[in-house]
Amino acid sequence: MTSIAVSTTINGDDVEFLCNADETLLDVLRNRLGLMGAKEGCGTGDCGACSTIMDGRVVCSCLVLGAETQGREIETIEGMSEGQDLHPLQAKFIEHAALQCGICTPGFLMAAKALLAAHPDPSEEEIRFWLAGNLCRCTGYDKIVRAVQGAAAEMRGAKT
């Protein structure tokens, strides 16, 4: 199989990689770039554990081909914190005990980040529908919703 050369931006850095035509962005991140924060829970876009942000939109990276990311901007969980400073969503997820096993957490954080970029003051219903594409089997979502509410309040407070 002939590999495809791809130039893209990941977490603000220029990245070049070779991939096969049938490789997904998730395969590339995990197997070629060593970015294993995105998880494969289903491979069919149903669980959201591989959520990343591409050009500002949440995507299931298992449904994006690696070759499709040519010239795009990709954000992954590995780029969420600034050095040692956790993003408010990350801090609030820990503070609110919004994770148990944690396998879904990176995906939830990426989806929640996109939510708060679009809706800095989301209602509970908006949070629940924005996060409906991310499955969590441990928490029953209660503490996840509260963590997102907490982070939204903090981020709004920080801006004013």
């Binding site: 924060g37 995105a38 990350q90 820990i94 994770l99 944690g102 957490t105």
Partner: peptide, 12 residues
Amino acid sequence: LRPDGVDKVTGR
């Protein structure tokens, strides 16, 4: 705070 929290929110 749980001791494994940071690892789990950073994808590590």
